[in-house]
Computed example of a mutant assay.
Amino acid sequence: MFDYHGVKWKKKRLKMLRLDGYKCQVAKMYGGNEEANTVHHIYPADEYPQYAWCDWNLISVSQKGHNKLENRQTGELTELGKMLQERTIPGVDWRKARRKKQIPPR
């Protein structure tokens, strides 16, 4: 089971929150603006331990956003969580891809 209380995770969590500007990326997908306080594994750490520490597999979310991605009772991904997983290509940094799309061509 993944250790969410260890020093390594706490440092990684802060890095990801800073990287995403402490903004919920789920809310952002829908034009919203919420503060992020949680980091979600797009590919669950227990099922995909090889991706547990990869930046591309981590996304900053609010508690509300996290609840939209994962059933908090069972730990299973919701339909939105599964869709996000299907759209996330292992090894591809979705943050960089998103930034490239926002830069207008010259």
Rank of each mutant, 00 (worst) to 15 (best):
L19S: 01
S62N: 08
N37S: 14
K28I: 02
A27E: 13
G32W: 01
R99N: 14
T78S: 14
R99Y: 15
K64A: 15
M83K: 14
W94D: 00
W94M: 08
E47R: 03
L69A: 12
K8T: 09
W94G: 04
G91V: 10
P90Q: 06
H40F: 10
R18M: 13
E76K: 15
D46F: 01
R72T: 13
S60C: 07
D20W: 03
V92Y: 12
E76M: 12
L77E: 06
Y43A: 02
A27M: 07
V61G: 07
Y51E: 07
E47I: 03
A27K: 09
K12M: 02
G21F: 04
Q25V: 04
T78G: 06
S62R: 05
K10M: 05
Y30P: 00
E86F: 10
Q85L: 13
I59S: 01
L77V: 01
L19D: 01
E70H: 03
D3I: 04
F2G: 05
Q85N: 10
V26S: 00
N33Y: 06
H66I: 11
N33S: 09
Q102V: 11
R95W: 02
A52Q: 15
S62W: 02
P44I: 05
P49G: 00
W53F: 10
V39T: 14
N37E: 11
Q73H: 08
L17C: 02
G81Q: 02
Q25I: 03
H40L: 12
D20E: 01
W56V: 11
R87L: 13
E79F: 12
W56L: 11
K23S: 12
K64L: 14
L77H: 05
K64T: 14
R87H: 09
R72H: 13
S60D: 05
W9Y: 15
K101W: 04
N57M: 09
R13N: 08
E76I: 04
R98V: 05
C54G: 04
H66T: 06
Y48V: 01
E34L: 15
M1S: 11
M16P: 04
Y48W: 09
N57L: 10
L58R: 10
N71T: 06
G75S: 14
G65F: 08
G32D: 02
N67Y: 05
Y30Q: 01
E86A: 15
Y43R: 05
N37W: 10
L17K: 00
W94I: 00
D20A: 08
G32I: 03
V92S: 10
T38Q: 11
N71H: 11
R98T: 06
P90C: 05
A27P: 07
P49V: 01
I89F: 02
D46G: 03
I59N: 00
S62M: 07
S62E: 06
M16G: 07
Q85A: 15
R99E: 14
Y43W: 10
T78V: 10
E70Q: 09
A36G: 01
N67S: 10
K82C: 06
N57V: 05
N37P: 00
S60P: 07
D55M: 12
V92A: 10
R98G: 00
D46W: 04
V39H: 08
